[in-house]
Design a binder for these strands. Sequence first.
DNA 1: TAATTTATGTCAACAAGGCTGACATAAATT
DNA 2: AATTTATGTCAGCCTTGTTGACATAAATTA
Lengths: 176, 176
Amino acid sequence: MQARAKTTPDPIRSALSSENGIDFAIIELFFFAYRDFTSDPDQILEQYGFGRAHHRVVHFVNRRPGLTVAELLDVLQITKQSLARVLKQLIDTGYIVQVQGLKDRRQRELYPTAKGRELALALATPQSRRIAEAIRNYGPVEREAIEGFLRGMVKPELRVQVDELPGSKSGEGMRR
Amino acid sequence: MQARAKTTPDPIRSALSSENGIDFAIIELFFFAYRDFTSDPDQILEQYGFGRAHHRVVHFVNRRPGLTVAELLDVLQITKQSLARVLKQLIDTGYIVQVQGLKDRRQRELYPTAKGRELALALATPQSRRIAEAIRNYGPVEREAIEGFLRGMVKPELRVQVDELPGSKSGEGMRR
DNA sequence: TAATTTATGTCAACAAGGCTGACATAAATT
DNA sequence: AATTTATGTCAGCCTTGTTGACATAAATTA
């Protein structure tokens, strides 16, 4: 048997399977699902010359008008430099406005404009449509399970972020 | 009433809600869930000096050993230039090997090495753990609904990609 | 009241990873 | 033999995220 050059390691020909107790089914479904979930708004964003970072900002500012820069940073878990670039573009182009805080004049409360609201809806519509289609054959019990699963996927210490959004079940997040 | 300078549009102070028929509950849960789902492997990847793109490549090469470059491009829906950079790193560092195709000598079949397999498992383990925790209180019926939902989120024309993976229900994807 | 802390903003540089276009070689197909 | 295909390479650009540093105004604390 010919000795193999040691610089080229052996190929493994067997497929990695769930035998190791890994839930590849859901891992992969989740990956593909999210990929396609984001592809809908991506195409719309492109028309505006924006990207996902813009979408996230527009989304959360619409869902929580008046949230401060710091709050947005916390929700998005990004740095202020990252945010600043995108936020500036959205402000300069009229999708978001900043209002100095009344209680704390250092703060900048962020609000959507009418066109900002329009954009948020335009981006959310195909997403919602895809979801509706995906749960079309399920009832309230299954819906509950799906939401519970997704909620369970969120780090416990960050679940408050979900609760702080309006209409959320666990917080009725009107904490402003 | 004081006329407002036209250069600053009006802030909308009301929160965007589900009244427009948009399913913000699942939209947001999905965003946060995926964010945290990827954060586990991200930390491991960092130790290897790799990123998400590497993870995806290692993952699918392990799940479908022998898949060609073109097949991987199709699964990942990225350009060959994008893939080339990451693939080269994984090959150069010994996680993946290329084998010239027997039937078509132009092709390059991609296989994991032992360390490539190890890496794939290391990355999938915390993901699987998070999933297990999120579905802990659910039974087979709910699990079915969750998988069905995720599957339904995938573009119909791309669902074959899920089916082509080993252990998948709808395809028993051993099509190599 | 002064010192310290905090909210926001800016500058700068770098990284990861995705894209487009162009070109090349070897192998397969027509 | 001509054409097409699989892969690979070069190059440049873009988006979005990071780090570090510094600044100003406002709030809080000593």
